[in-house]
């Protein structure tokens, strides 16, 4: 397992200028506080920013998983949990920015249709998080996404619940990601590489009536 102090990939997270630019002037901490306050009072600079909305949705999903892990059985493992959670947070922060423009085909010569790389990373992260007992850590699109037909490789890092069959889960995740890419992009996918970089402990199930 990854140690608590070791993120999936090293990034210069002190680069506050970059962070501010791609979250419409907000930090990931401010977005987290906004969620804590139940998005009140409404802040249009957050609500009207697609990058902030992508980051907020990812934060919400991560919080749901965190809540399920908060049981007495695994509190002793909180340091380890904090390690991968922090790593996921770092990637949510870095990947919410709009990034490159990915063309969408249209026969009209006046059409300039694109989906942003940030939107695609956001939907891939959401799709991956919907696969049970998987949390997406990093998501990257390798290749010239701005060139129609160019072969693109999707590289995903994920954390998986301990005890799961890793090859089977990877296959399930890959299938879900292919379907999402087919729905939302015209990309020519050469491969989807999945690396399971971390394990997290299975949430404790509540005791049954007979066990009480």
């Amino acid at each position: 397992m990854t140690s608590p102090d070791e993120p999936f990939v090293a990034f210069d997270l002190d680069s506050s200028d970059r962070e501010l630019a791609h979250l419409a002037g907000h930090t990931i901490e401010e977005l987290s506080d906004y969620l804590d306050r139940g998005r009140t009072p409404p802040d249009p600079t957050i609500d009207d920013s697609p990058e902030c909305q992508i980051a907020l949705r990812s934060l919400q999903r991560l919080r749901t998983v965190q809540r399920s892990l908060l049981s007495s059985d695994i509190e002793r493992e909180s340091e380890r949990s904090d390690g991968w959670v922090r790593s996921v947070l770092q990637h949510i922060n870095l990947e919410a920015h709009s990034g490159r423009d990915i063309p969408i085909e249209h026969p009209s010569p006046t059409a300039r249709l694109v989906v942003t790389e940030g939107a695609v990373r956001g939907i891939l992260r959401a799709t991956g998080d919907e696969v049970s007992n998987i949390i997406i850590g990093r998501c990257r699109l390798d290749g010239d996404v701005s060139e129609p037909g160019a072969p693109i490789t999707i590289r995903v890092h994920a954390a998986i619940c301990q005890g799961e069959n890793i090859p089977a889960k990877a296959t399930e995740l890959r299938r879900a990601l292919y379907a999402a890419l087919d729905d939302h992009t015209d990309l020519s996918i050469a491969a989807i590489d999945i690396t399971i970089r971390d394990l997290y402990l299975r949430p404790a199930t509540p005791p049954s009536e007979s066990e009480k």
Binding site: P50, Q53, I104, T110, A111, G118
Partner: peptide
Amino acid sequence: VHDAITVHLRGYPECEIAKIAVTVARIG
């Protein structure tokens, strides 16, 4: 969306369309 804008702009025949740019910035 592109096609809806094209249809809408038919109400302005004096306008010649050079470009309609549609960006999907968030999905889901």
